[in-house]
Design a protein around this nucleic acid. Structure first.
Lengths: 190, 190
DNA sequence: CGCCCCATGTAAGACGTTACATGATTGA
DNA sequence: TCAATCATGTAACGTCTTACATGGGGCG
């Protein structure tokens, strides 16, 4: 109910609950897949789930089958789904790109199941437009670092960042092409 | 003096203080360069500096030139330099790679000025060895995601990660080649 | 019976975010 | 003189980390 701002972990949980799960299930996903960047510790997960429930974004139901330990299965409420959609569809800014791709990729990963392929395509385009000026900014910085006063390793580190964003830019084109191919085969919805 | 664990921001500050600066200087660097991922807010920087000073890793001197506002210039103590070196030289593990390149690249960026080119090369090799098994792990996950039950966007998101690490792997080779070229021209120290 | 995995929780402490506060100096 | 920038700080708040705690159930 409270309009508290939701941290990244909250959205990650909300998104994963598209498939109803217990806190323990979610922890396992975080610790076993490439989502290790999110905490799999109970001290983070369980309070986060309770906050989401308090805010009316998810609801938990205790499951008590015989021969089964007590577990609480959470699933998103309509309000939770709406919040998730709104978060996914946010336009991507230069700042988002600078302060970590993790969140952006999480939004993209969820986009298709939550909102459909059109939203995924829109996100890709939004990302691509944010990427171009950011890359230019990085290249300008590199120019400024070409002085011999700057160590080779510092310059190389920046070059690493540039390459990584160039690779990301290529990926967006690849991803868009993938959707285009798919769109021709299935319905070109809307 | 206290053996408190130092957060990433602390090391970032410690490293930048290779060039003695005030808190305000550091804030400007964080807000104007590609290090925006670190907080440029006074509520983060100043307490962090005071913690480092309390632990004896840096020392501040108040500068009071006429026609100048009062500013406090910090510089690392020998103990601070030792701590920084130790942090930079830590071997890179699979876990480090999984939980964000940011820290690793920061260590690399500092490595040359703090410890010399040999340390930079060692870091690159360490990174490369950690990268190979991690990439394999990601590729295995991709195989598992090839089922049609998984959305295209989720799969593409993982592919993005894989590509980014492949690009990183290429960069390590490029960086090593750069140092090799440099080594032939200058002293091949050690 | 003892041990390990399932499953959930809590408490203490550290850190970052946001917002506010203070003063001195430069420039219009 | 008024505004903007320089430069430092502090207080409240929320969240994450680390560590500990609890209990049921399967298994040897």
């Amino acid at each position: 109910m409270a309009p508290t701002r939701i941290p990244a972990l909250g959205y990650a949980l909300l998104g994963m609950l598209q498939k109803p799960s217990s806190g323990y299930d979610l922890r396992k996903v975080f610790s076993s897949t490439s989502m290790k960047s999110y905490s799999d510790s109970p001290g983070a997960i369980y309070p986060a789930l309770h906050r989401l429930e308090r805010d009316g974004l998810i609801r938990g139901r205790v499951e008590q089958r015989s021969g089964m330990r007590r577990r609480q299965i959470f699933r998103p409420t309509p309000k939770g789904v709406a919040e998730l959609k709104q978060w996914i569809a946010l336009p991507i800014t230069r700042e988002d790109v600078g302060s970590g791709l993790k969140t952006i990729m999480l939004r993209f990963a969820f986009s298709e199941t939550v909102m459909g392929a059109d939203a995924s395509v829109a996100l890709l385009k939004s990302l691509d437009s944010a990427l171009t000026p950011y890359l230019q900014h990085l290249r300008e910085q590199l120019q400024a670092m070409m002085s011999p006063a700057v160590s080779t390793s510092a310059r190389l580190a920046l070059e690493c960042g540039i390459r990584s964003f160039e690779s990301l830019s290529e990926w967006t084109r690849y991803a868009l092409a993938t959707y285009e191919k798919q769109g021709r085969k299935t319905s070109g919805s809307k």
